[in-house]
Simulated assay, not measured.
Amino acid sequence: MNFFFFFFFFGLVSLIYIRKHLLLCLLSLEFVVLSLLLMVFNMCLMSNCFYIYILFMTFFVCEGVLGLSILVNMIRFHGNDYLNSIYLW
């Protein structure tokens, strides 16, 4: 179980320190999601409740698609994927 927490912590640290490009932030976020999915799968192996695993996979796939659509829209409208090019009012 400590192995999965190490993956989760490493993903969060990389998400905090890499803040320049949106693609790198999405990759570190997917690393966190993968570690959470492995933790849920390990828990489902012990308790035989795989419907929760399918539910988590559905949410994580939707999160990945949303992140990629934001990335494509940023590249189309701004020409790059720098996070500092987003103007938040």
Rank of each mutant, 00 (worst) to 15 (best):
F60G: 01
G64M: 03
N48V: 15
F3C: 10
E63R: 15
L66F: 13
F6G: 04
L24S: 02
W89Q: 13
I75M: 07
F56C: 11
L15N: 04
L24Y: 07
F59E: 03
I18A: 12
Y82C: 00
Y51G: 01
Y51K: 11
L45V: 10
L23C: 13
D81S: 03
L37P: 00
L26C: 07
C25R: 13
L83N: 11
R76N: 01
L36H: 05
M39D: 02
G11D: 02
V32G: 01
S28L: 05
V33Q: 05
S85W: 01
M74W: 15
G67S: 15
C44R: 08
C62N: 08
L83H: 04
N73G: 07
L34E: 00
V61L: 12
G79K: 14
L34R: 05
L66P: 01
T58N: 03
F8L: 05
F9E: 02
I54F: 14
L22D: 00
I54M: 11
L23A: 14
Y51E: 04
L24V: 13
F9Q: 02
F3P: 02
S69V: 14
I18G: 15
L83A: 13
Y53T: 08
H78M: 15
F5R: 10
V33A: 11
L68Q: 08
I86V: 06
F60P: 00
L71G: 07
L38R: 07
I70L: 12
L34K: 01
C25I: 00
V72I: 12
M57I: 09
E63V: 06
I86G: 10
F59K: 03
L34Y: 00
G79I: 10
M57W: 06
L71M: 02
N80R: 08
L22Y: 06
D81R: 05
G79A: 01
S35M: 00
L68C: 06
I18D: 07
Y53H: 08
I86S: 04
F31T: 11
L12K: 14
G67Y: 15
S69K: 14
M74Q: 11
K20T: 00
G79E: 01
L88P: 05
F6A: 13
N42V: 09
N73I: 09
S69F: 12
G79H: 09
I52V: 07
F31W: 10
T58L: 14
I18P: 04
V61T: 11
V72N: 09
F50G: 03
F60W: 02
M43D: 05
V40F: 03
Y82H: 11
F50M: 01
Y87H: 10
V72S: 06
I16S: 06
G79R: 08
F4N: 03
C49Q: 12
V33R: 15
C44G: 10
L66K: 00
I70H: 10
D81I: 07
V65R: 12
C44S: 15
S47A: 06
F41C: 09
S14K: 09
L83S: 14
